[in-house]
């Protein structure tokens, strides 16, 4: 007797990613570079977030051909993105056997009101969040892993820092609260009472939480680990840099040894030019990907 798609199996898969770096790739060659650099998984997509931002238009699930090629090229897990609320894109990715689906604000949302009911799938999901309420709602729908949103495709760490600090501060607050204050906090956050009780009992989130959206350098990755992330997603930061192999290796190593500052100094030498990056205040509210989803 065996049972697939249980919470332990889906959340456990994310536990195995801890301390690792998950890299965005758009073809098999990039996937092989990521694997060789020590990525714990790759995210197969058609365009990295900075290109999506530049090109505009509607961003959708990648051509299944790309995802398949990436799955054939590497032995590490392959993740892929579906649009928020796009039931069929998610089911297609599940049918293709991708290892994790990112219901992602990087793509243009298919539904502005409802996210996917992720606990009806066998494949596990990762979702973005900016605060504990958003984290609670995604876990309530069945997300098995979280990532703070940051602002994808900017190469600017400021939003990733803001969101990770926000989530962790709210977790600490809940843990310190007395039990009779939890219901009011649940109402204020838009989180379920049961979820907050679980956070209080565990002393942490019930699922793994990675940082995402703006990591461009080894020091950025180490910063997110320092602030309590379980690992990092790097989107445009690697393959939009001058020397992807070197950047990928350096970011992996800085994530593992995030408190070894001499090492991070060494890793950061002669890396070449990082992705250019965008100042957040120059992006209008409507163009901010983090505002997608609720």
């Amino acid at each position: 007797m065996s049972e697939q798609g249980t919470n332990r199996v889906k959340r456990g898969m994310a536990e195995m990613q801890k301390g690792g770096v998950i890299m965005d790739v758009v073809n098999a060659d990039q996937a092989r570079i990521a694997e060789a650099a020590g990525a714990t998984a790759v995210m197969a997509l058609e365009r990295v977030p900075s290109d999506i931002r530049r090109d505009g238009g509607v961003a959708r699930m990648a051509d299944p051909r790309i995802t398949e090629e990436v799955m054939k090229a590497v032995s590490i897990p392959v993740m892929a993105k579906a649009r928020i609320g796009h039931i069929v894109e998610a089911r297609v990715l599940e049918a293709m056997g991708v290892d994790y689906i990112d219901e992602s604000e990087v793509l243009t949302p298919a539904d502005e009101e409802f996210h996917l009911l992720k606990n009806t799938y066998t494949v596990p999901f990762v979702c973005g969040c900016r605060n504990l309420g958003e984290a609670a709602r995604r876990i309530g729908e069945g997300a098995s892993m979280l990532r703070t949103k940051g602002e994808p495709g900017t190469g600017n760490i400021v939003e990733a820092v803001r969101h990770l600090r926000q989530v962790n501060a709210e977790v600490r607050k809940v843990v310190a609260m007395s039990e009779d204050e939890l219901m009011t906090e649940a109402r204020n956050l838009g989180a379920s009472y049961e979820f907050l009780k679980e956070v209080k009992e565990l002393g942490r989130l019930p699922v793994v939480n990675f940082a995402a959206g703006g990591v461009a350098t080894p020091a950025d990755a180490a910063l997110m680990m320092e602030l309590g992330a379980d690992g990092v997603f790097v989107g445009s930061g690697i393959f939009k840099s001058e020397n992807p192999e070197k950047f990928a290796r350096a970011i992996v190593e800085a994530t593992t040894h995030y408190q070894d500052y001499r090492l991070i100094a060494e890793l950061s030498k002669d890396l070449g030019i990082a992705m250019k990056g965008i100042e957040i205040s120059t992006i209008t509210a409507e163009e901010r990907m983090q505002e997608r989803g609720w």
Binding site: M1, E3, Q4, G5, V9, G97, V98, D99, Y100, V123
Partner: peptide
């Protein structure tokens, strides 16, 4: 793959 992962 992951979708085939299980408890027993």
């Amino acid at each position: 793959r992951q979708v085939d992962s299980f408890e027993a």
